[in-house]
Amino acid sequence: MAVIRDFAFQGMQMLLVLLLAPLLTGFVRKVKARLLRRQGPPLIQPYLDLIRLTRKDVVLADNASWLFRVIPYFVFATTWIAASLVPTFRSGLMFSWSADLIAIIAVLGSARFFLALAGLDVGTSFGGIGSSREVMIASLAEPAMLMIVFTLALIAGSTQLSTMSAFMNSPEVGLRVSLGLGLVALIIVAIAENARIPVDNPATHLELTMVHEAMVLEYSGRHLALIELSAALKLLLYVSLIACLFVPWGISPATAEPKLLIVGVAAYAAKLAVGGILLAVFETAIAKMRVFRVPAFLGAALMLGLLATLLLFVSRSF
């Protein structure tokens, strides 16, 4: 019985992230539009886009290989898995131990690895430029992320997300310098990983500064729908990650009674809304960087992460 219940919670989480992800993207777009005094598209526009895209034929470039056709499914599957392993409304889910935070980061790394290959498959210069810049950004964002993971793991004494989240919720944590540094670094990494302003612009096309969009330029129809959905899931994942580590209040622990779940879901929705608004405000307030300013931006995250880890090596109380 307990197994079935645990299984149901895991399934609920998978469905929840899948269903909420486009809404979050739509919400950020809406808030941005309102900040610019525009009406903006309706909140459900991303869903409509996805449905429209899946109904269309795929137009495949003549020399696209089998890999090009498999990659959207792979990227979607890995991102979905990763998003389902981050605690959202309830921690200690059935399969939460199958991958710790380092593994979740690496799973996202797999998705990026294949997406960068997809950019090179057709052999256009746009795909190449996108992949090339994506791996450059990743080569700094990934180590920065790992240093943040080290910081948090040293504080919590675990790399297991559920344990970390529970520890962050306990009074033992207190205010720490390293946590502050880690939070700033994590936000920088999250912005870069999700191709948001100032690193990349998700709304742009036909511009030599685009990174992520250039890489997936050759995709169409259902393939493009999956890639867009993966991007939305990734945004949701990072917001959930920041929420479960730095504002873990409200996540119902594995042992809690079912009625606490409602609190968990409500808290999660509130956190997503706040995260979305903050992201929209930040993006509206700042201009996009030149591509070669990005390494300095991410290098700052890497240094902050390293500094936070060093502090913790010096003393556990920092």
Binding site: D57, L60, A61, D62, Y73, S125, H205, R222
Partner: peptide, 25 residues
Amino acid sequence: SGMIAAFAIHRLASDKLRRGPAWGC
């Protein structure tokens, strides 16, 4: 999950495919 996605999309939406020259903007 990759299989579920492929199955759902191919069954419920479209599984048509056309070949054409690369788009390249």
